[in-house]
Design a protein around this nucleic acid. Structure first.
Lengths: 110, 110
DNA sequence: TTTTTTCTTGACAATTATTATCCAAATATA
DNA sequence: TATATTTGGATAATAATTGTCAAGAAAAAA
């Protein structure tokens, strides 16, 4: 029911968003990599969506750039989900059923 | 916008649905396993959602019981998606963004 | 209850996927 | 050109998935 106005919310991938944050801060990749204790080639791959960041990494990045981690997490998980079902013609139904399943699970737990 | 009436559509897991099909046909697990060329312990785990079936397996099962494979695929993928994000408080937003991403991808491809 | 059939469980090995790391090549900047 | 930055590919290490087996539990039949 509560479908948020899909404002032109960010459809950029998690990698692109990380790169945007980094570039806005004018920080070299090499520098961010070292803050994150990561090989720079690994971070490069993450920014180009060639590899997935861990959740812990996403949280660290949110801290470093002082943004809400939840917005990065939405970008991350929506990437994962979209990739998984993008070829399915009934992707929309899949998402609806998934939502219903989660809601159902939650009513049970309470 | 075209949100299907979520009729009491099947919120059962893929494993449960497979088991239901098999039991309705009064077929022993061992028998179905051999039709699918699977170890029966593997099928048992699949029916209890302890292991994921492959897509090929799902298609074979749909054939055997003469049901639409798409409905089983929806059950399967929605399980996967729900499991992945069930702990996230913004699960609903994640799903919305994922949908928008897929739609966006598709407009690009055409 | 005993027997028989059916299903579940756990352990292990084999396979496949993911991740980390290094270094050279490419690109961009001064 | 020289320097800094980013990317790509190879390899090794780690983790996840899958297949297989055998023994035990549960259910159904006798």
């Amino acid at each position: 029911m509560s479908r948020k106005n899909i404002s032109m919310q960010n459809l950029d991938s998690i990698g692109t968003q990380i790169r945007q944050l980094r570039e806005k801060a004018e920080m070299p990749l090499r520098k961010l990599a070292s803050l994150l204790d990561l090989d720079q080639s690994t971070l490069s791959k993450i920014e180009r969506d060639e590899r997935k960041p861990s959740i812990i990494l996403i949280e660290q990045i949110a801290q470093i750039f002082n943004v809400e981690k939840s917005s990065l997490l939405v970008a991350f998980y929506s990437d994962v989900v979209a990739y998984e079902i993008q070829e399915e013609s009934s992707f929309s139904e899949i998402l609806q059923v998934a939502e219903a399943k989660i809601e159902y699970q939650r009513t049970k737990k309470k």
